[in-house]
Design a protein around this nucleic acid. Sequence first.
DNA 1: AAGGGAACCAACCGCGTACGA
DNA 2: ATCGTACGCGGTTGGTTCCCT
Length: 305
Amino acid sequence: MGKAPCCDKHGVKRGAWTPEEDQTLVDYINNHGHGSWRTLPKHAGLLRCGKSCRLRWINYLRPGIKRGPFTDEEESTIIQLHAMLGNRWAAIASQLQGRTDNEIKNYWNTHLKKRVLRSLEAKRPCVMADRIVQTNSPSTRHMVQWESARVEAEARLSMDSTSLNSASTTKTCPDYFLQLWHSEVGQSFRKIKEKEGVVSQSQVSQASSSKLEDSCSDVSLQAKNTGTQSLKVSPKLEGIDMIQEQSTSSYKPKLEDDRAWSDSGNYEFLDSSDSALKHLLHMPDDIGFLGQTDNFLNLLDGRYD
DNA sequence: AAGGGAACCAACCGCGTACGA
DNA sequence: ATCGTACGCGGTTGGTTCCCT
């Protein structure tokens, strides 16, 4: 389908916005609302394309935008949500009041991603680096990325729980997911999924601690034994009404370009609407929890692809 | 002080999708 | 059901600032 250009490039100003342009845009939207972004510049008297106006408003001018450095809490939230949602910046931003997807995306790419990788390599200096380089399949790459983000989140959770002097930290699968699931982040995640209609209220309530504990320990990696390369979730998960069988062949990369994997968590299931939740629920229990990373790495050796 | 590279971040681009005609 | 339009999103670019030599 042909797509009309968002604006006539001729005579449209580009580049940094001036304070005068900002004021014009703010005044217009305060008085009239933004209405149609396409026609807004003309009505407001701005020599900008509608897209540019929209971006400027959303990222900088609209009320409630929080500027300045990210707090530790915000960082932690971003890392944890990224581990669950991948590069769904808008979804992550919706959980951080006053922060925009663009800001979070930039912050991740310039600060957090490096830190997560450093943290990961500190734990698995040679092996993980080698595996990252050697591995080719999209699902494997995604798992490596997932693992890297998870390690960072885990480290933070561990620090948090230490400071709170709580009994158990994140050494086991159920503990880790339960902490995540019951945290504010987990609540936000469930809200997103409820909104998307992926998980109903009742389903969420059914996904109680015991279910989740079971799910962590009972997800079986059938591919190991059958060679069918399909993942099956334990029947215990039926109550949560999740898809029980997920052929890994339907696990496709959004971008085929090899560069994409390192930046993107966007490996989607054919039905991508609840892929993040599926990621959580389909993770085999012996994937990459502290002290068990070798198992995780063994899984990466082709068997899982 | 100057130049070159790295880091940062605002803005742009193009694709997918929702929605109305 | 199909088409055209507009919007929202994620990836990328390019200008600016910072830092090191």
